[in-house]
Amino acid sequence: MRNFVIWVALAIALIVLPNLVSFSQQEVLVFLTINILVVASYRLLTLTGEWSLGHVVIMGVGAYASALVTKELGLWVPLGIIVGGLASALIALALSVPLFRMKGFYFLIGSFAAGEIIRLLWKRFRDPFGGAKGIKGIDPMPDFSIGIYQFDFFEPVSYFYFSAVVVALCLWILWRIEKSPVGLTFHAVHWQDKLAQASGVNLRRYRTMAFVIASGFAGIAGALLAHYIGTINPNSFDVEVMVFVLTWAIVGGTGTFYGPILGCVVLTILNEIVLRELGLEQTRPLIYGLILILSILFMPNGLESIVQKVTRRKDAK
């Protein structure tokens, strides 16, 4: 009952929130929503102990796929978003063949190389990927009405509502996976792969499964982004963006489901409100780097460790 009240309150807060902020901040809210899905899906992969540097490029695969099937084949945009997710999952499945011959640091570097290859393919082939200029004029979500609310997708508020529902659904699925025996097996693969294997766990299969699922949801996030901004190019998914994703995940902490999400929200607020107010947004990489170093030094378990400390103290009372 208490949980139900919390969820309803959160839903109401999310409905009211965009109406309280400025137009540019409404746009930030849309990006934040999409980025939350990116970090949350990234965490699923990190459950198995593997860190990828190709996650953002895989997200781009979803964006390109969805943009192309809607623009060239005239597919309905919501279906295109699902196709985007599937495309990313399929690419991840193909990449897993060479990449999961490695683990740890080697996987990290391998995933970076694989991502760069995909990005170079986008740049190299003007047909159909549009070369370095990318794809422009991607179909927006078609407007629709649900009776009490008219979705007008030129308004960021509408797109925020739409993406929030999609992302919430995806997060729910990710949460269910993590809390299931499958999620427990991911943990087992991470902490003691030899013992997991001796218990009959096919390590490769589970690493691949985590990679494919994480990539699928990243693809959905990419597709959501593509249909919002209407133009994508290879540089929208370069390693700089990947560094932001890593920073969100590390600063937030990857020990809990909410850690990376917390990192993403806090750093976005910091960036968009504090830095922008101070006129320092050009120094974002500098400040992110500083925050990353400081949090690794002084808060190795991330922001989530602070939350845990606070809630534990409350429990103790």
């Binding site: 269910r176 996976i177 499958v182 427990l184 087992a188 030899k194 997991a196 218990s199």
Partner: peptide, 30 residues
């Protein structure tokens, strides 16, 4: 050699992996 970061019960649960194979779709749908 154990899953030191997991609870004792979770350790034993991983031991049941072969008998009760986790199923992704069923797990999501409950």
């Amino acid at each position: 050699t154990l899953f030191g970061e997991l609870s004792v019960l979770d350790n034993a649960l991983i031991g049941t992996h072969m008998t009760f194979r986790p199923n992704l779709l069923k797990a999501i749908l409950g």
